[in-house]
Design a protein around this nucleic acid. Structure first.
Lengths: 90, 90
DNA sequence: AATTCATTTAAGTATTTAACTAAATACTAC
DNA sequence: GTAGTATTTAGTTAAATACTTAAATGAATT
């Protein structure tokens, strides 16, 4: 999960994830939403992919990115433990 | 939430939160769990506090730290949106 | 096979971050 | 008020990060 937390710590990457909530997008479409060069966005996408937060699929000369929800589920489990454990002590 | 994500991106800070799941701890007790100087831990605690992930309370010469669960709840809500939105598209 | 378009990789730079040591603050007890 | 303990603040350094531009890869088009 460390990669995921690292990946989520950047606002640009979280905004990319937000965009992918609506629909799958190519790398180019994603970068169109930012005031940033394509290589920069490509790096962010690489990080998101290494963190298993997104998947990519080659479609001809395009690369289509989509959300991978499994890590989000893990994140929820992780956060729930902090809320549950509140009972035992005070 | 940006501060929270930033705060959560560091393994040491996540371990601090894990420790506080069991019980409230003083700054000193927390730093005893790490191979790291007290000032370093103090900085981490400051960040966690600014992110509203922990609270502190002065008890005499000690400072007792405890979890603040509200941001964890927000985090769950945030993550849930990514799972729910999975329906609409494929 | 040469050209163009989409994307990534490489290399360099500026900023941020996480650690340290030393000094300051704050409380406790004599 | 001096001494001791707990914690934080300040200043520094090394490593990590987020950008940039330039070059490389790979597919589509003529």
């Amino acid at each position: 999960m460390n990669n995921a937390f690292k990946a989520l710590s950047d606002p640009t990457r979280r905004k990319i994830l937000d965009l992918l909530k609506d629909r799958d997008l190519t790398a180019g479409e994603i970068s169109d939403h930012f005031n940033m060069t394509k290589p920069s966005i490509s790096q962010h996408l690489k990080l998101l992919k290494n963190a298993d937060l997104v998947q990519d699929e080659k479609k001809g000369q395009f690369v289509v990115y989509s959300l991978n929800t499994t890590v989000f589920q893990e994140l929820i489990s992780w956060a729930l433990e902090f809320i549950d454990k509140g009972d035992g002590q005070k």
